[in-house]
Measured scan of single mutants.
Amino acid sequence: GSVVKEKKEKALIEVRPYVEYYNELKALVSKISSSVNDLEEAIVVLREEEKKASEPFKTDIRILLDFLES
Score class of each variant (00 low, 15 high):
residue 1 G to N: 12
residue 1 G to S: 13
residue 1 G to W: 01
residue 1 G to L: 04
residue 1 G to I: 13
residue 2 S to K: 06
residue 2 S to W: 02
residue 2 S to E: 12
residue 2 S to N: 12
residue 2 S to R: 04
residue 3 V to I: 09
residue 3 V to T: 14
residue 4 V to H: 13
residue 4 V to R: 03
residue 4 V to N: 09
residue 4 V to C: 15
residue 5 K to F: 14
residue 5 K to Q: 14
residue 5 K to Y: 13
residue 5 K to N: 14
residue 5 K to I: 11
residue 6 E to Q: 06
residue 6 E to D: 14
residue 7 K to D: 15
residue 8 K to R: 08
residue 8 K to P: 15
residue 8 K to Q: 15
residue 9 E to M: 07
residue 9 E to C: 15
residue 10 K to H: 14
residue 10 K to R: 07
residue 10 K to A: 14
residue 10 K to D: 10
residue 10 K to T: 12
residue 10 K to C: 15
residue 10 K to Y: 11
residue 11 A to D: 05
residue 11 A to T: 03
residue 11 A to L: 10
residue 11 A to S: 04
residue 11 A to R: 02
residue 12 L to E: 03
residue 12 L to T: 01
residue 12 L to D: 04
residue 12 L to F: 04
residue 12 L to V: 02
residue 13 I to H: 11
residue 13 I to F: 04
residue 14 E to S: 14
residue 14 E to M: 14
residue 15 V to Q: 01
residue 16 R to L: 06
residue 16 R to K: 12
residue 16 R to D: 00
residue 16 R to Q: 10
residue 17 P to M: 05
residue 17 P to I: 07
residue 17 P to L: 07
residue 17 P to N: 05
residue 17 P to G: 04
residue 18 Y to M: 05
residue 19 V to N: 01
residue 19 V to R: 00
residue 20 E to F: 14
residue 21 Y to I: 01
residue 22 Y to N: 03
residue 22 Y to A: 02
residue 22 Y to L: 03
residue 22 Y to K: 02
residue 23 N to S: 10
residue 23 N to P: 06
residue 23 N to M: 10
residue 23 N to T: 10
residue 24 E to P: 01
residue 24 E to Y: 02
residue 24 E to K: 13
residue 24 E to I: 03
residue 25 L to K: 00
residue 25 L to I: 04
residue 25 L to C: 03
residue 25 L to G: 00
residue 26 K to V: 15
residue 27 A to M: 08
residue 27 A to W: 07
residue 27 A to T: 09
residue 27 A to P: 01
residue 28 L to W: 02
residue 28 L to A: 02
residue 28 L to T: 03
residue 28 L to F: 02
residue 29 V to S: 02
residue 30 S to R: 07
residue 30 S to G: 10
residue 30 S to W: 09
residue 30 S to N: 15
residue 31 K to A: 12
residue 31 K to G: 07
residue 31 K to E: 14
residue 31 K to Q: 11
residue 32 I to S: 02
residue 32 I to C: 15
residue 32 I to Y: 03
residue 33 S to E: 09
residue 33 S to H: 06
residue 34 S to C: 05
residue 34 S to A: 14
residue 34 S to Q: 14
residue 35 S to R: 11
residue 35 S to D: 06
residue 35 S to Y: 12
residue 35 S to C: 07
residue 35 S to I: 08
residue 36 V to W: 07
residue 36 V to M: 04
residue 36 V to G: 04
residue 36 V to Y: 05
residue 37 N to R: 10
residue 38 D to A: 06
residue 38 D to I: 06
residue 38 D to Y: 06
residue 38 D to Q: 05
residue 39 L to Y: 08
residue 39 L to C: 15
residue 40 E to H: 10
residue 40 E to N: 12
residue 40 E to D: 12
residue 40 E to P: 08
residue 40 E to K: 04
residue 42 A to R: 02
residue 42 A to G: 08
residue 42 A to T: 14
residue 42 A to K: 02
residue 43 I to Q: 04
residue 43 I to M: 09
residue 44 V to L: 11
residue 44 V to H: 11
residue 44 V to E: 13
residue 44 V to Y: 09
residue 44 V to W: 11
residue 45 V to F: 09
residue 45 V to E: 11
residue 45 V to C: 14
residue 46 L to N: 00
residue 46 L to D: 00
residue 47 R to Q: 08
residue 47 R to I: 08
residue 47 R to K: 11
residue 48 E to C: 13
residue 48 E to N: 12
residue 48 E to W: 10
residue 48 E to A: 10
residue 49 E to Q: 04
residue 50 E to I: 08
residue 50 E to A: 11
residue 50 E to V: 08
residue 50 E to N: 07
residue 51 K to I: 11
residue 51 K to V: 11
residue 51 K to G: 11
residue 52 K to S: 08
residue 52 K to P: 00
residue 52 K to I: 08
residue 52 K to H: 10
residue 53 A to R: 04
residue 53 A to D: 01
residue 53 A to S: 07
residue 54 S to W: 10
residue 54 S to K: 07
residue 54 S to Q: 11
residue 55 E to N: 09
residue 55 E to R: 06
residue 55 E to W: 10
residue 55 E to M: 12
residue 55 E to K: 09
residue 55 E to A: 10
residue 56 P to R: 08
residue 56 P to C: 06
residue 57 F to Q: 02
residue 58 K to R: 12
residue 58 K to Q: 07
residue 58 K to E: 01
residue 59 T to G: 12
residue 59 T to Y: 11
residue 59 T to W: 12
residue 61 I to C: 02
residue 61 I to N: 00
residue 61 I to Y: 01
residue 61 I to E: 00
residue 62 R to W: 08
residue 62 R to D: 03
residue 63 I to S: 03
residue 63 I to W: 04
residue 63 I to F: 07
residue 63 I to L: 08
residue 64 L to T: 02
residue 65 L to H: 01
residue 65 L to M: 06
residue 65 L to V: 13
residue 66 D to S: 14
residue 66 D to N: 11
residue 66 D to E: 11
residue 66 D to V: 12
residue 66 D to W: 12
residue 67 F to H: 14
residue 67 F to C: 05
residue 67 F to E: 06
residue 68 L to M: 09
residue 68 L to H: 00
residue 68 L to N: 00
residue 69 E to D: 10
residue 69 E to H: 11
residue 69 E to S: 12
residue 69 E to P: 03
residue 69 E to I: 09
residue 69 E to T: 11
residue 70 S to M: 11
residue 70 S to E: 07
residue 70 S to N: 13
residue 70 S to G: 13
residue 70 S to L: 10
residue 70 S to C: 13
